[in-house]
Amino acid sequence: MNRESHLVELVANDGIHIGQSTVEDAHQAPDGKLHRAFSILLMDPDGRLLLQRRAAVKTRFPLRWANACCGHPAPGVPVPEAAATRLDEELGIAGVPFEQLGVHLYRAADPVTGLVEHEYDHVLLGRVTPDVAMRPDPAEVAEVDWVEVETLRSGLATEPDRYAPWLAGVVELLPGGAGGR
């Protein structure tokens, strides 16, 4: 099934469920519909983050660097469960426990596709080794790279258009002792 026809949970600004929509409908301009999402940060023991460059066929922000994985839980599916499933689908990584870091609420319009991200984004941190077995799905991921947090922050400040617009807010939720500020 086309991912754009999957259902997402619409939420109010406080994260309370208010309905559902298809992925496609939730991302329509001009404003998009606020919906539940998740962003996974994967960190190695040296404090580096795994980034993925989104595939060229992605409907929103193609070929931009983003966190390891992101997606939308279907209505009624717990965020950690949906995140674990999506991490396996996109990168072939399974069995990673997550720490919930918080929520990043944002809206961003894609200048290339005209679609809008308006998300109540649950940010999850998983810890893995840099040699973790991966099988990136080429329909989702163009490439991956391990990056120092401060190098990433510098890139986000100087070349923001290379990155997905949610990435800066997601990285800001890193705890101080995990490579964050």
Rank of each mutant, 00 (worst) to 15 (best):
R54E: 07
A55T: 12
A55N: 10
A56V: 03
A56L: 09
A56T: 07
V57G: 09
K58H: 12
K58N: 12
K58F: 04
T59I: 01
T59M: 01
R60L: 14
R60S: 10
P62V: 13
L63R: 14
R64K: 13
A66K: 04
N67Q: 15
A68H: 07
C70F: 12
C70M: 11
H72N: 15
H72K: 14
A74M: 08
G76T: 12
V77R: 10
V77F: 03
P78S: 00
P80T: 04
A82E: 00
A82Q: 07
A83N: 04
A84I: 04
T85V: 15
T85H: 14
R86L: 05
D88M: 05
L91S: 04
G92S: 11
G92R: 12
I93F: 06
I93N: 03
G95A: 11
V96C: 03
F98V: 00
E99P: 05
L101E: 03
L101F: 03
G102R: 02
G102C: 00
V103I: 13
V103A: 02
L105Q: 11
Y106N: 04
Y106D: 00
Y106M: 05
D110H: 06
P111L: 06
P111G: 09
T113K: 01
V116R: 10
V116A: 09
E117R: 02
E117V: 02
E119R: 03
D121P: 03
H122C: 06
V123E: 02
V123I: 13
L124V: 06
L125D: 05
G126E: 11
V128D: 07
V128N: 10
V128L: 13
P130D: 15
P130F: 10
D131G: 01
D131N: 08
V132G: 01
V132M: 07
R135I: 14
P136Q: 09
P136W: 06
P136R: 07
D137A: 13
D137F: 03
P138W: 11
A139I: 05
A139Y: 03
V141Q: 10
V141A: 03
V141E: 05
D145F: 08
V147M: 15
E148Y: 00
E148H: 02
E148I: 01
E148V: 00
V149F: 00
V149N: 02
L152S: 07
R153V: 11
S154G: 11
G155D: 14
L156K: 14
L156C: 09
A157E: 08
A157W: 05
T158Q: 14
T158I: 01
P160S: 14
D161P: 07
D161Q: 14
R162K: 15
Y163N: 05
Y163C: 06
P165V: 11
G169V: 13
